[in-house]
């Protein structure tokens, strides 16, 4: 599978620049991203470092035209974080697609060559496939959140409130209220 090998070489040569911009733009989606961008300590700065290294891994996989399954790990590393932050679904996954834009900006001159322009189509298709897998993972993360909620309700951890004494369950009004709360 060597659908964009010439382009891949150029991607390798420009790797640092592309990654810098891609990371910068992705971390720029946070309100106060200074620390996320600056600190390279993986334990003091999990969001910044995990996203940075996740994007780097994804870029290398694209550059090497890796099998789709290989993308899951690093995609998950990025999207599991964004899935619980204050983003809409599209804002959470848009960084993956944004790579197309970054590459076109950085390789503006090179892409004037016909051969590379053709290969760019293939590359972009790979990016989109990656983003779609990212979206699946996003959905899985959200489902996990709801499973967590149900699990807590079932396990009795949630019985801090409105539970306790069994006589409560005989209380029709309380039950009604509970149902309404669940629907909320």
């Amino acid at each position: 599978m060597n659908t964009y090998s010439e382009l891949a070489e150029i991607l390798a040569a420009k790797q640092k620049q592309i990654l810098d911009i891609w990371t910068e733009r992705t971390l720029g989606t946070y309100s106060a991203p200074g620390f996320f961008k600056k600190s390279l300590d993986p334990f003091a700065n999990p969001v910044g470092v995990q996203i940075r290294s996740g994007l780097a891994a994804l870029f290398e996989l694209l550059r090497d035209q890796a099998e789709p399954a290989a993308f899951v790990g690093p995609l998950d590393q990025v999207i599991r974080i964004r899935a619980v932050q204050d983003f809409t679904a599209s804002q959470a996954v848009v960084p993956f697609l944004e790579l197309k834009w970054v590459v076109k900006e950085v390789l503006a001159q090179e892409l004037q060559r016909r051969l590379l322009a053709d290969q760019l189509n293939e590359f972009e298709c790979a990016v989109e496939r990656m983003a779609l897998v990212g979206f699946d993972l996003y959905c899985q993360c959200r489902e996990q959140l709801y499973r967590n909620r149900i699990q807590e309700l079932k396990s009795g951890r949630a019985r801090f409130t409105d539970g306790g004494c069994p006589s409560r369950f005989l209380d029709a009004a309380a039950r009604q209220e509970q149902m309404e709360n669940m629907r909320k």
Binding site: I21, V94, L97, E98, W101, A108, Q109
Partner: peptide, 29 residues
């Protein structure tokens, strides 16, 4: 080729259209 500045591109001075422009916060806290 002109060197592309990281910080400039980060605040969307895109030449081509970008999907991401709406994702950035743009007000002081």
């Amino acid at each position: 080729m002109a060197v592309i500045k990281v910080d400039k591109l980060a605040v969307s001075v895109a030449k081509g259209p970008s999907l991401m422009t709406g994702a950035y916060p743009n007000k002081p806290w």
